[in-house]
Simulated assay, not measured.
Amino acid sequence: MARLEPLTWTRVAAQLRGKRDESLLVERTEAEAVGHRVTQAQTQRDALRAELAEVDARLAATAKAPTAYAALVADREHRLLTAGTGPAAQLADIAGRRR
Score class of each variant (00 low, 15 high):
1 M>L: 07
1 M>G: 07
2 A>M: 05
2 A>C: 03
3 R>W: 04
3 R>H: 05
4 L>D: 05
4 L>P: 01
5 E>P: 03
6 P>M: 14
7 L>W: 06
8 T>V: 03
8 T>M: 11
11 R>D: 10
13 A>T: 07
13 A>M: 11
13 A>V: 13
13 A>L: 14
14 A>C: 14
15 Q>W: 15
15 Q>H: 15
15 Q>C: 05
17 R>F: 15
17 R>K: 12
21 D>C: 06
22 E>Y: 06
22 E>L: 06
22 E>A: 15
24 L>W: 07
25 L>K: 07
27 E>H: 10
28 R>F: 12
30 E>V: 13
31 A>R: 07
31 A>D: 06
32 E>D: 07
33 A>Y: 00
36 H>E: 06
36 H>A: 14
37 R>E: 06
38 V>L: 13
40 Q>A: 13
41 A>E: 02
42 Q>W: 08
44 Q>F: 12
45 R>G: 00
45 R>Y: 10
45 R>K: 05
46 D>R: 12
46 D>L: 15
47 A>E: 08
47 A>H: 11
47 A>L: 14
47 A>T: 11
50 A>F: 15
50 A>E: 10
50 A>H: 13
52 L>Q: 07
54 E>K: 12
56 D>Y: 02
59 L>M: 03
61 A>H: 01
61 A>C: 00
62 T>Y: 04
64 K>Y: 05
66 P>H: 12
67 T>G: 14
67 T>I: 14
68 A>N: 09
69 Y>Q: 02
70 A>R: 11
70 A>N: 01
73 V>E: 08
74 A>N: 07
76 R>F: 13
80 L>S: 01
80 L>G: 01
80 L>E: 04
82 T>R: 08
82 T>I: 09
82 T>Q: 08
84 G>M: 05
85 T>P: 00
88 A>N: 00
89 A>K: 07
90 Q>H: 07
90 Q>C: 01
92 A>F: 01
94 I>G: 00
94 I>K: 02
95 A>V: 06
95 A>Q: 03
99 R>F: 11
99 R>N: 04
